[in-house]
């Protein structure tokens, strides 16, 4: 068991950094503008990230596993570590980085190292979703902006009451955002361990709930790591997001958070996908997307809805560099680290 925990540590570290950084995308403005207290935000975020991860995290994880059948714990550990290292290096270089993109790059690195065939259909689906998700966020934000503006124009609400309603709306959007973050991004944290963990863990029968599967156990561990990141480190990031980067009013913050949460949910919900397919409607691929880029897309959407002034379009260029640079760097790190683990530490990685 201790060996398993050592192997899982890289994934847990990725989870911790996801909690420390990405929770701020969901709760940053609410906490930074002091509309919601940090403790409340951290608690709600942790609880709903875990619920989202355990009960809805399998969809995006399945897509990720199509990129490579990682059946050895040591391989999964190295991939997650390479992804974590890429995130660190990109962050140090002040480049926009996403855990989703680095984990995909690291898996590709593994596929090249293991000479395993890459599922290009899944890969193109994932790349397409990365480009599409900020665009979709912007579109959702534009629609929500006009809807909220219309409501505020026609339903005359006192400023003080509006503040209370906005506060509640921000909490609900934060809960939904946290759930969607857990559901969509747990694949980045624990997705690579799913196959190898089946050899180590066994399903647990729980009273009233029924079977608690191996994947759910794994995602619970990942969710707890995210929660640890939220409680230990996200406050600083939240204050920066809330007061520094995006100068949003509480109402526009609500629009941005809700838009991003909707997009993350669309790319994570198995139930929604099954429902749309049952109605013969086009469904969304279940792919881990970047919550940061989804937020940036929504902020730009709000900017466009407000007349398109003061939008920093250069950020779009930087994001698109990240779509290519992050997976390439992560694949490189992954390849080198797998070589070291396989040949120096004599661990089986595929």
């Amino acid at each position: 068991m201790p060996a398993v925990l050592i192997f899982l540590s890289s994934g847990l570290f990725l989870g911790w950094s996801l909690g420390a950084n990405d929770a701020a995308n969901v709760w940053g403005t609410a906490v930074g503008t002091r509309m919601v207290r940090f403790r409340k935000a951290a608690l709600l975020c942790s609880v709903f990230v875990i619920i989202g991860a355990v009960f809805s995290g399998s969809g995006a994880s399945t897509t990720l596993s199509r990129l490579g059948i990682i059946s050895e714990m040591a391989g999964a550990f190295t991939i997650a570590l390479a992804a974590a290292l890429s995130v660190y290096v990109m962050t140090k270089a002040a480049l926009p980085v996403s855990t989703s993109q680095s984990i995909v790059g690291a898996i590709i690195g593994w596929s090249i190292f293991a000479k395993s065939a890459v599922d290009y259909d899944a890969l193109f689906k994932i790349f397409g979703t990365w480009v599409f998700s900020p665009v979709l966020s912007a579109l959702v934000a534009i629609m929500l902006f006009f809807l909220v503006s219309f409501l505020l124009k026609h339903v005359k609400i006192h400023l003080i009451r509006l503040d209370s309603i906005t506060r509640t709306a921000l909490i609900l959007a934060g809960i939904f955002g946290s759930y969607s973050l857990g559901a969509n991004n747990i694949a980045n944290v624990m997705g690579v361990f799913v196959i190898s963990a089946e050899k180590v863990f066994s399903p647990i029968q729980l009273a009233f709930i029924g079977e608690f599967t191996v994947v759910q156990q794994l995602f619970l561990l990942g969710g707890l790591a995210i929660a640890a990141g939220v409680f230990s480190y996200s406050k600083r990031v939240m204050m920066t997001v809330g007061t520094g980067i995006y100068r949003l009013s509480p109402i526009t913050a609500f629009i941005v958070v809700l838009s991003s949460a909707i997009v993350l949910f669309l790319f994570a919900s198995v139930g929604l996908k099954q429902f749309l397919e049952a109605q013969n409607l086009p469904s969304f691929p279940l792919v881990p997307v970047s919550s940061s880029q989804s937020i940036v897309g929504a902020v730009i959407g709000v900017g466009i809805a407000k007349g398109g002034k003061n939008i920093n379009y250069r950020i779009l260029g930087r994001i698109s560099i990240g779509w290519i640079a992050t997976p390439v760097i992560a694949a490189g790190f992954s390849y080198i680290m797998l070589f070291v683990v396989q040949n120096v530490f004599m661990q089986k990685t595929f």
């Binding site: 503008t33 002091r34 509309m35 400023l159 003080i160 503040d163 209370s164 009013s249 509480p250």
Partner: peptide, 11 residues
């Protein structure tokens, strides 16, 4: 009560 943090100063 930390109400209307965004426009408290204005009010």
């Amino acid at each position: 009560e930390l109400l209307i943090p965004d426009s408290r100063g204005d009010v």
